[in-house]
Computed example of a mutant assay.
Amino acid sequence: MGEVRTRLAGPDDALVVAALVIQCARHREGAAEPGFLDRHARAWLATATTHPVWIAEAGDEHAGFLQATVVEPLPWPGRPPGSGAELAVDTFFVRPEHRGIGVGEVLLRAAASWARDSGLQSVRIQAGVHTTAMVERVGFVPDARAHRMEL
């Protein structure tokens, strides 16, 4: 399969990003949706600066992707501008045939490095049963502060 590489997706990657989203959805038992590829590509291009995506490649194949959202809090008295901003991982997917070769770790390290270089304060990810050990190897720690309400 070759060396695992990752790169920040750019405008020319919009259809690749959309195709990887479709692969992830199918893997998670989602249904096909006519026109989704173009719809997702247009939506992502319009928000790419606040929704960065990293693409992993192994050999000459797309091995997975990580899609995130830059969350910037509004100003607050006494808090310096730009403080508290974080990168929230929305979708993290490694194609099954590329699992176990470090693709996930490469993606997480690339996103964390970008967040650090961009001046963000943290990176947040919800790790599942199968990804917790890998996420912790990269340097993430459990955080039980979050609660959720489904509406």
Rank of each mutant, 00 (worst) to 15 (best):
E72M: 11
E33S: 09
L120A: 03
R95A: 15
P142Q: 05
L74N: 07
R109T: 09
L15Y: 15
T91C: 05
A41T: 04
G100T: 07
G82M: 10
F65C: 05
E97D: 15
D90K: 00
V129Q: 10
A19I: 00
R109F: 02
A56R: 09
V53Y: 02
D12C: 03
R28N: 13
P52A: 03
V71M: 11
R99D: 01
Q126P: 01
R42K: 14
D12L: 05
V70M: 09
G59F: 07
A115V: 08
A9E: 07
V141K: 13
R95F: 00
V123N: 01
A63G: 07
W44A: 09
A9H: 10
V106F: 01
A115E: 03
A14C: 11
A46W: 00
F36W: 12
L107G: 01
F92E: 10
Q126L: 11
R42M: 04
D143L: 13
L74P: 12
L107S: 04
P96V: 09
G100S: 08
A111D: 07
P34D: 14
R109M: 01
G30F: 03
I55W: 02
V21E: 10
S118Q: 14
L37K: 03
G119F: 10
V106S: 12
A43D: 14
W54C: 02
A112I: 12
I101V: 15
V129G: 04
R124M: 11
V129H: 14
T131N: 06
C24Y: 11
P52L: 06
A46F: 05
V138N: 08
V135S: 08
E33C: 06
A68S: 15
A41P: 09
A115R: 13
P73S: 04
D38V: 03
R137P: 05
C24E: 12
A48P: 08
A133W: 00
G128P: 06
R28P: 00
G128W: 07
A43R: 12
S83D: 10
A63L: 11
R39E: 15
V106N: 04
V141S: 12
R26K: 14
I101F: 04
G78E: 07
G128M: 11
L45S: 11
I101Q: 13
R79I: 14
L66Y: 05
A32M: 04
G78P: 09
R116G: 00
L87G: 06
S83Q: 15
L87S: 10
V71R: 13
F36A: 15
T91D: 10
A43P: 01
G84C: 05
G30M: 02
L15M: 14
E105S: 15
